[in-house]
């Protein structure tokens, strides 16, 4: 009888503990930086996020899980820009970014294969905040402030 109660207790406790998470130990130590890391977004084989840069400014970073190394993002980061939100597609080829530059907040799309960055226009105009790409990289959802209210809109990104 005591054994049955013990078993029941163990079952109940295991249910309370929730879903088991296995830390990626080797990776997590390499991701760790002094300063705040923000806005993670997972691809199938990598992650992008906003990390402190060498001169104290923040920058977007890419870490490739297959190679276990960070990768360059030429043309994406600027020392005078402050990244706010970032999102990546499943292949890790497209990165959507909201950043503040020269007192403006802008929405951009970066192609990692071409190292190209292009602005995306909001119509009607608004101030973007958080951005999310679909895993196929074809759609983008963005939180926008218009007239003192937060709205969400989705656009196609061909």
């Amino acid at each position: 009888m005591k054994l049955a109660w013990t078993l029941l207790g163990l079952v109940l406790l295991s249910g309370c503990q929730g879903l088991r998470l296995q830390p990626l130990m080797g990776v997590n130590t390499r991701l760790s930086t002094p300063g705040d890391d923000r806005s993670p977004s997972m691809a199938r084989q990598g992650v992008v996020w906003i990390a402190p840069g060498p001169a104290g400014q923040h920058q977007v970073r890419w870490f490739d899980l297959a190679s276990g190394m960070g990768g360059p993002l030429p043309g994406l980061n600027r020392p005078d820009a402050q990244p706010i939100s970032v999102s990546v597609d499943a292949k890790g080829s497209r990165i959507a970014l909201v950043r503040s530059l020269d007192g403006r907040t802008e929405l951009l799309l970066y192609n990692r294969n071409l190292a190209s960055l292009r602005p995306l226009m909001l119509v009607p105009a608004g101030v973007p905040a958080r951005v999310a790409l679909s895993a196929d990289g074809q759609q983008l959802a963005v939180q926008v402030s218009r007239g003192g209210r937060w709205e969400v809109e989705v656009m196609r990104v061909p």
Partner: peptide
């Protein structure tokens, strides 16, 4: 303007923090 869709509904206030499924 036709390329984007907004998702407001009666009775809803601010909408924030969006995320999409794989194919949107």
């Amino acid at each position: 303007a036709g390329c984007s869709q907004r998702y407001s509904a009666p009775g809803l206030g601010d909408q924030e923090d969006p995320a999409l499924s794989g194919n949107g």
